[in-house]
Design a protein around this nucleic acid. Structure first.
Length: 211
DNA sequence: GCGGGGATTAACT
DNA sequence: GTTAATCCCCGCG
């Protein structure tokens, strides 16, 4: 049965992001996902750091190989989960961007977990947040606009002044693409990933964590 | 088939 | 700063 409809317009507060939200290029989607809530069953966290991975032209993107068994969901419509294993150890969670035929995805790199006194390090880093939310390759290919357990919910809007931009992490092999400004994060947020021992490093004029 | 290496992390020296 | 852990993708022959 239908749940009770709120007294106000049911359209002012959608429970989840719908398919059309994801139909934009990866760099735009990476920016737009900041502040949104990633939900898996009873666990959730607010996205505070993302990276955009573009199509075959992006030498850091899995799409650079063309469509393969592993990355094929990147070539499909936006809003699909792309989850893969990295270094044989860590599951990496991505949101596919764009329309079918336009390869791209957004890597979720850090979440702010709810609850006062929650250790911010638990979801700081792409490998750690999948563990915190219980995500794995079993979720690869799920439709985030329709799945009952895994989806994205609207959160607070992040003002443009609070969004920092910089190069992506861990892709030094990618030539000129290594310097592309495709990493986005909430400036000064404690859950944003950074090297374990460089927390004393100077943050050049709020440009963000040194890396 | 084989071999190199990776969108990372934690635990070393 | 350096390195192990640990799996499997991808290119090549």
């Amino acid at each position: 049965m239908a749940r009770p409809v709120s007294a106000r317009s049911p359209h002012t507060s959608p429970r989840r992001l719908s398919a059309r939200f994801f139909r934009r290029p990866a760099d735009e989607l990476a920016r737009a996902l900041l502040g949104k809530t990633l939900v898996h069953a009873d666990r959730r966290g607010v996205i505070v750091e993302t990276e955009a991975y573009l199509g075959p032209e992006d030498l850091a993107s899995h799409a650079r190989f063309g469509a393969t068994e592993r990355n094929r969901v990147m070539f499909g419509p936006g809003g699909i989960a792309y989850v893969y294993l990295c270094y044989g150890v860590h599951e990496m969670f991505n949101v596919v961007s764009g329309s079918a035929g336009q390869a791209g995805a957004v890597l979720i790199r850090a979440l702010a977990l709810p609850g006062p006194g929650r250790d911010p390090s638990l979801a700081r880093g792409p490998g750690k947040l999948t563990r915190a939310l219980g995500l794995s390759r079993a979720h690869n290919g799920l439709d985030l606009a329709r799945d009952e357990r895994l989806y994205l919910a609207p959160g607070r809007a992040v003002p443009a002044a609070e969004v920092a931009v910089g190069p992506r992490v861990g892709i030094d092999y990618a030539g000129d693409w290594a310097a592309a400004p495709l990493r986005f994060w909430v400036a000064d947020h404690p859950a944003v990933s950074r090297p374990p021992r460089s927390r004393r490093g100077r943050r050049g004029s709020g440009a963000g964590p040194a890396r």
